[in-house]
Nucleic acid binder design. Sequence first.
DNA 1: GAAAAGAAATGAACTGATTCAATTTCCCGG
DNA 2: CCGGGAAATTGAATCAGTTCATTTCTTTTC
Lengths: 343, 343
Amino acid sequence: MKKVTIAEVAKRANYSSGTVSAVINAKNSVKPATRDHILKVMKELNFRPKGVARNLKKATQDKSIGIIIKDLNYPFYASIATGAREYANSKGYSVIVASSESDHEREKELSHLFSEKDIKGAIIAPTVEGRAEIEHLFQLRMINYPFVLLEDVKGIQANVVAIDNSKAIKRAVTYLIDSGHTKIVHFAGPPNSSHTQERIEGFRHAFSESTLAFHKDMIVSIGSNYDESFAKTLEYFKSRSRENYPTAIVCFNDLQALAVLTALKELKLCVPEDISVIGNDDIYYAKIYPVPLTTIRAPQHEIGKRAAEILIENIESATVLPPKRVVLDTEFIIRESSKVLKH
Amino acid sequence: MKKVTIAEVAKRANYSSGTVSAVINAKNSVKPATRDHILKVMKELNFRPKGVARNLKKATQDKSIGIIIKDLNYPFYASIATGAREYANSKGYSVIVASSESDHEREKELSHLFSEKDIKGAIIAPTVEGRAEIEHLFQLRMINYPFVLLEDVKGIQANVVAIDNSKAIKRAVTYLIDSGHTKIVHFAGPPNSSHTQERIEGFRHAFSESTLAFHKDMIVSIGSNYDESFAKTLEYFKSRSRENYPTAIVCFNDLQALAVLTALKELKLCVPEDISVIGNDDIYYAKIYPVPLTTIRAPQHEIGKRAAEILIENIESATVLPPKRVVLDTEFIIRESSKVLKH
DNA sequence: GAAAAGAAATGAACTGATTCAATTTCCCGG
DNA sequence: CCGGGAAATTGAATCAGTTCATTTCTTTTC
């Protein structure tokens, strides 16, 4: 199945390529009868003019940026994308989004796709599996392709807009300790995520600055998707006696926290009376939930906006700019899923 | 600021364009010293090879499709996109997503963007504002650009994968009527959406087949975003006496239904004891909610999958295929937010 | 140190559209 | 039926890279 070109259409229709081009571009210099005839031939041959070739000569260059997120369905990323989109749109850029599904290979493919399609730059939530596989980032850098990462990646100095996960969790845990909780556990995320590591670190750090001792049993791996977290929560509580229940759970993220809340309800445990639950991210649905979730708010909108800002600055710069690193503050939001035990 | 071309890099580096090209493409026929030198010049000039030109000659054509949804943050669309992505990926296609924000102009821009970038085809959730502005679809059709719509659009016969909104709502309302509800209202969506109209139609239809009379006060316009729906629900109940409260509310979509549930809680009205609430779509969060939502499930995953299937079939066809129209069934899911009044 | 082999670099042809000055066709008034 | 201006059409140049047969430069070998 060979590609049909404009030349073939022209030959078949007995007109020149210029006229066919005029038809495609809806120029009004073409006689209606000619136009109809050429359109008919185009349809017969299923002629699809190659966008790549069309744009080569075209004067007007479109402006567009891409975002590679890890999960289309997790509202956290959708909000970041929206923040980026709003800023980019205000600067005249279109925005397209793609999901890597936390798959390093797919991330690589997508970043190639973006650069090959002349998407002017990319915001990337990077997935680094095992040892740092970051050739694709160096590849982008080689062709001076502007990009901004949403997490630090070891081994490359690049534009980064991120939050301090460790500090954020530490703050929440310190709050729990200060409010009299002693039996605190962390329901941790997927082991291969750098976020998981940072959050565990923050958890430990809070203990090291308190009078309480950290114990590794306090870290419970509980998966990242809802169903898995729900099941593992049930399992966790069923496998221990009531006096060994924690009084507070710090979750990896809000979706997981919602799963925990639902599981606790099924176990007839009350939140926050029996157990305090703290989430992370402050996704849209965290505050909609009937027991509004105490959580650590990542400024999703702002993250997207700042990333887009830096990206566009790089795109429009005539020279290669030095990498920028922005760490945004999180906000600890106390709602109704946590309670103070003593003062 | 003129575009830096490979020729300039070549001249400045004292090598030929072929060698520079070899460097860009990481061919190993270049002497390391040469390579380093050319890379340095590339960086100095901030040379960004134009993807468009690179791809013109390249043998391997990438495979990719695009999806234009209306809202990145509404899980309904994210699920459709995911369904499409999974199928497309299995066929070797990359998928990119863009949001039109229900803005017809943006939809038009994005569809142009896709075709110009040689994204091989598009799935489009169309926004038709006021009179049918569908030139951009005809534009796509003219260049035989494959696309699939997620709603019927008047005035054009195209590939469509959709659900029967009217029928779906009718079913829910008939259920309510059969379970003894007499005071039923419909909290309708944004007036300019075809979905809103179809759902109102289904609501009326259920009444016309029952012994109950329809009255236009049963249709309450309540916006589409959460905050607006929440506020308007409060307002609705505060502006009438208790004996005029409905016993059942059929909502435009699930997000709205969640807003209604939250508002009712604030009003100290119990669901489903005092009032039954029915949603629409069955978004992910509908079942996570502590009062699991009775709703009408649109097979989001399936919609995306079928759309991608038809799209790819068209992309890979040597001839122009006749339009296909697929209407998928919805499923009425009774959970805990609704109750039967009598039998 | 010359010949052969291998490595590195060249540059013109090529990709598939658009563009636009030049040419041909059409149409209308005299 | 002719002339001239407008309308329609032509086709070669152009866009910015890749490709690859050919040439030039290095090594290696005896």
